[in-house]
Amino acid sequence: MSDGVIPTRAAMEGDGYYNRHSAMQAAGNSAALSLWQSAANSVAFGDESLVIVDYGSSQGKNSMDPIAIAIQALRARAGSERFVEVIHTDLPSNDFTSLFTALENEPQSYMRGAEGIFPSAVGRSYYEALLPPGRVHLGWNSWTMQWMSQHPIDIPDHIFGLHSKFEKVHDSLLQQQARDWRLFLERRAVELRADGRLLCLFPGRPEEKVGWEWLTSELWLALLDMKDNGLLSGDDLLHINIPTAPRKLASIRAPFATESGQFAGLRIEHAEILPGPDLHWDAFERTGDAFPLARGWTGMMRAFSGPTVAAALTGKPDRAALVDELFRRLETRLVSNPQRHEHFVAVVLLHKVS
């Protein structure tokens, strides 16, 4: 890989599992859709084919509505016959089969009844160059920028670093996030056309909170239970880390603290942090039944973190069974301790101005 960046996370849980267990992410996307439509309504273009890139697509289901909105908005201006290329990108290990199956079969697929739409995929980390310079009119990027390009430090007291009590851990994560953000912006700035737009949505962090305390702590406690039962070692726990963290507005804006307000030819048009959705709490308060809540959040947690846990257990002949046991224990813990899931979403719209 270029620039010495080595990916340390696996793709999302395969065989369509992420598509079936990412309703929270889909609900969070709604916070950005009006802004996304405005971007599609304002981006400049000529007679060329229109290019939309879905950066970090995973298995595609949650990309259908945003891409459909962009296609409709662009063709309303360019004409219904204008060719549109849609390029989905993710890691080489991503479940692209489920993505193309969703394009074919999902009721909300942007390909339904469409002509002149040409989807394709790139299997490569977006910390690398993915496309030729000046190719992209619109970029959509949701629920990926919390992932760091590298695992910067082992965490002795949690599975998620920002919940560690050690300042050294926090400092390493924040430094890695800053490097990653700048590198991501530089790569995308090259690929965007002049006047192109890139919308990013990812876990955010208000000044006074981190978010995700309940779910991440219960997952860590489930791991400690497995260690106490002799299923995992202390060394296993040291290396089972999910290299993700939310960002504050200050860190999002930091590269743009220049005289021109630009970084790599990009300018921030919009940036805010909003409360994230809880899809299960209202139903739990109505029924008092914690099992649907626990199943829902366990599925979501496994969808994004299960493969990374499994990768950390490489070499153990029973690692698949260990991952199953971890999430079985997580579900049991959530049933016995139901809480509202508090988290926050950052929405950032970037404009290629030069």
Rank of each mutant, 00 (worst) to 15 (best):
D3C: 11
V5A: 09
V5F: 11
P7F: 09
T8V: 11
A11L: 07
M24Y: 10
L33Y: 14
E48Q: 10
V53K: 00
S57Y: 05
I67L: 08
I67K: 02
I69F: 14
Q72A: 08
F83Y: 09
V84D: 00
V86T: 00
V86S: 00
T97F: 14
N105M: 14
E106G: 12
Y110V: 07
M111P: 00
M111I: 04
A114P: 01
I117Y: 02
A121E: 01
R124W: 02
A129C: 15
P132H: 07
W140E: 05
S142E: 07
M145R: 05
M145N: 08
W147D: 02
H151E: 01
D157F: 06
D157N: 02
I159Q: 01
G161K: 00
L162G: 00
S164E: 04
Q176D: 06
A178G: 08
D180V: 04
V190L: 12
R193T: 06
A194C: 15
P203F: 06
G204E: 05
V210F: 11
G211P: 00
T216M: 12
L221C: 10
A222W: 01
L223K: 01
N229C: 15
I240G: 00
P246D: 14
L249E: 14
F256Y: 04
Q262P: 03
R267V: 12
R267P: 07
H270K: 13
E272H: 08
L274M: 11
L274A: 02
L274R: 05
P275K: 04
G276S: 09
P277D: 04
P277R: 07
W281H: 13
A283L: 06
E285T: 15
E285F: 13
R286T: 11
M300K: 05
M301T: 04
F304K: 00
P307Q: 02
V309K: 00
A312Q: 00
G315N: 02
F327N: 05
L330W: 05
R333Q: 08
S336E: 15
R340F: 07
V347S: 03
V348W: 03
